[in-house]
Design a protein around this nucleic acid. Structure first.
Lengths: 325, 325
DNA sequence: CTGTTAGCGCTTTCAA
DNA sequence: TTGAAAGCGCTAACAG
C-alpha cells in the first residue's frame, strides 16, 4: 500500500481510504491511486485489515455434511445474502459428533469471524461457552429451541413427524413402518411419527434405522427388511428423507408392489427429484431458501445493532401431497 | 496471550511458543500456561498469527456451484486431506462466468491463502496474472491442460465424449441425439461425442442444449423435444449428466418407450442413484475422491517444496456399462 | 481532503 | 529455556 502511495504521490493512508471509502478522496488523487493499483497489480491484505479494524468481514457456517444437498441449498442462500453485504464465507464440515464440532468451533473462532451459523441446537457446554465468549452473532438453524445461544431460525422436527402421522391416519392407514437414516434430527422426526401414529390408534410394525447418510440403497434395503423380516404386508412407510423414500419406491416396483395402493410412502425434504419420479413422492417441504435468507437477515440485523431482531424464527413446513401417499 | 502469560508468570512470547511448539518450553511452565489458558478461555488470534508469520494456514477452493454434488464430493476429499495437515478451508462459489470468477479470485487472494484450488482451466488474463502474483500453489481441477497456471489434476472431457460415441457405435447405434445442460465442459463432452459419432458413420439428429443446471425436468423435456420436434424415433441419447439421463429414462417410461431397446441412454458422473434406478444408468465415472485427494497431494508437495511434484495429473475416467445402453 | 501517530496480537530474531 | 525488540500491513483516531 505504501508502494502504491509512492507511485501515486500520496501517503499510504490515502491509499487505504481510496479503497475503503473513495468519497473521502479527491477525484484526481483517486484516479492516480487507481492507476497505481492497476500498474502494480496490488491486492490488499485483508488479514492486516482485519487485525487493525477488528472486523474480519468473514462469516462461517458449520454443517454436518457439505455433500448433503439439503444443507448445501440452505447455506447457499445464507452465503449469497451475506456476500451482498461484503462478507466472505468460510464453510466447515462437522460430521455428526458434538465433540468434533467443538474442536472445529475452536479453530474457526481463532479466525475471528464476524458471525457464525451452526446447524442444529445441541452443542457441548464448552462450545457454548466459547461461542458466548466470542461475542458475535450466532445463528442456529435447521431446528428450533427456546434457548438458543443467540439466534435461532428453524422448524420443529417433532412436529413434522406428528403431521405426517396425522396425514397417514387421515388417509386411512392403520399399519406403518419407518425407514430412517442420518442424524439425530431424522430420529426425532421418526419417533414423533411413531408416537403420534400409535396415539391415533395405528400400529408401527417395525422401525429400520441406519447409521450414516441416506442412500437409495438403504431405502431399498429398508423396505426389503420391513417386508422380509418384519412381515410388513402393506401400509404406510415413513422415511426420514426423500432419498430413502425413492429407494423404497424402487424396491416396491422391483417386487411388483403397488405404490401407493399397497405401500404408501412419505419422504422429507422435497428435493428436486421428488416431484419428477413415478409416482412423485409425497413429502415434507421446508423452504431452505427462506431459512438461509432469514438466518442471514437475523445476523445482519444483529451486526447492524438493529433492536427489532427476533431471537427465534419458526419457518414452518408443509406436507406436499403427491403420488406415493 | 499477554494476559495468559501474566497469569502463568511468563512473558507473552513463551505462551506463543507453548502453543506453536511445546517442546521448546519446560514441562513445568508448559503446565502452568495450559492451566492459565483453561482458566481464561483463551482462543488464539489466527489473524494476528497469519500477519506475523505470513502463513495463513488457509486454503481456498473455487467451484462453479456448491450445491452440485459432483463438485462437493471432490472438494470434500480435498479439504479432508488438507485439514489433516492443519489447513482450514475457504469455499467460494464462482458461478459459470469467468468475469465473476476473476472478482472472486481477487477478494479471496486478499485473505492470503497458502494455496488455492480452481475448478476448470479457463480463466481471464487478469485472473492468471493475480494467481501468478500471489506466488502460492494453485491447482486447477476437473479438466486438463498442458499449460496450467501451476498444477493440474483432471481428465479430458473431449475424450469422454469420444469414448461414449465409440461405445454407442460398437453397440450398433447409428442414430443419436444429445441432451446437455450445465457448463462449458458439458458442451465439450457433447461436441466431442457428436463429432466422433458422425466420423464413425452415425447421424446426430438433434442436440438439445439447456443453459443452467441439469435437472430431471430438463432431462424429461430433452427427450420430449428430441421426439416431438426432431422426429427422433429411437437410437442413442448422450446426456451430459446422470440427472439428465435419469430424466430421459423417466420420460421414456411415461411414454411407454422401451429403454434400452428403443432408446438407449448414457449419463455422466456415476452418481449414487445411477446404479439404483430401473434400469440402472450406463455412465462415465470419474473418481472424485482420487481427484480431490491428488489435488491435495500436489499442493502439499509444492508447499513442502518437494521437487518431485508432477505438474499435470490425468486421473482418467471409465465407462460403466449398465442397463440403459 | 490529506498526513501523522499509534496500535491490532501475534511470530521472528537475537541475546541472555 | 526464556525474554526483549522489531515488525507483519493495515485502520482509527486526531490534526492540519
Amino acid at each position: 500500500m505504501a508502494a502504491v502511495g509512492r507511485l501515486a504521490g500520496v501517503s499510504q493512508v490515502t491509499v487505504s481510504r481510496a479503497l475503503s471509502d473513495p468519497s473521502k478522496v479527491s477525484p484526481e488523487t483517486l484516479a492516480r491511486i487507481r492507476e497505481a493499483i492497476e500498474v502494480t497489480g496490488f491486492v490488499p491484505n485483508a488479514i492486516a485489515g482485519a487485525l487493525a479494524s477488528r472486523r474480519s468481514m468473514l462469516v462461517t457456517a458449520l454443517v454436518p455434511s457439505i455433500t448433503n444437498i439439503v444443507y448445501a441449498t440452505m447455506v447457499k442462500a445464507f452465503s449469497n445474502r451475506m456476500r451482498e453485504h461484503g462478507y466472505q464465507f468460510l464453510l466447515s464440515e462437522t460430521g455428526f459428533d458434538p465433540e468434533e464440532e467443538e474442536r472445529i468451533i475452536a479453530t474457526v473462532l481463532s479466525r475471528r469471524p464476524d458471525a457464525m451459523l451452526l446447524t442444529g441446537i445441541h452443542h457441548t457446554a464448552q462450545a457454548r461457552k466459547m461461542l458466548l465468549g466470542a461475542d458475535i452473532p450466532v445463528v442456529e438453524v435447521w431446528d428450533i429451541t427456546d434457548s438458543p445461544v443467540d439466534l435461532c431460525v428453524g422448524f420443529s422436527h417433532a412436529e413434522t413427524g406428528r403431521a405426517v402421522a396425522e396425514y397417514a391416519v387421515a388417509k386411512g392407514h392403520r399399519r406403518a413402518g419407518t425407514v430412517t437414516a442420518g442424524d439425530a434430527r431424522a430420529l426425532r422426526r421418526k419417533e414423533a411419527f411413531s408416537r403420534r401414529f400409535t396415539e391415533l390408534g395405528g400400529t408401527v410394525l417395525a422401525e429400520i434405522d441406519h447409521d450414516g447418510p441416506a442412500t437409495l440403497a438403504r431405502g431399498r434395503e429398508g423396505l426389503a427388511r420391513l417386508i422380509d423380516m418384519a412381515g410388513f404386508a402393506g401400509g404406510f412407510v415413513h422415511c426420514s428423507s426423500d432419498v430413502l423414500a425413492h429407494g423404497v419406491v424402487i424396491e416396491a416396483h422391483a417386487r411388483g408392489i403397488d405404490v401407493p395402493g399397497t405401500v404408501a410412502v412419505s419422504g422429507f425434504g422435497d428435493q428436486d427429484f421428488a416431484a419428477q419420479i413415478e409416482p412423485p413422492i409425497t413429502t415434507v417441504r421446508v423452504d431452505r431458501d427462506v431459512l438461509g435468507r432469514s438466518a442471514a437477515e437475523a445476523v445482519l440485523a444483529r451486526i447492524g445493532k438493529r433492536p427489532d431482531v427476533p431471537t427465534v424464527t419458526d419457518v414452518g413446513f408443509e406436507i406436499i401431497t403427491r403420488g406415493t401417499a
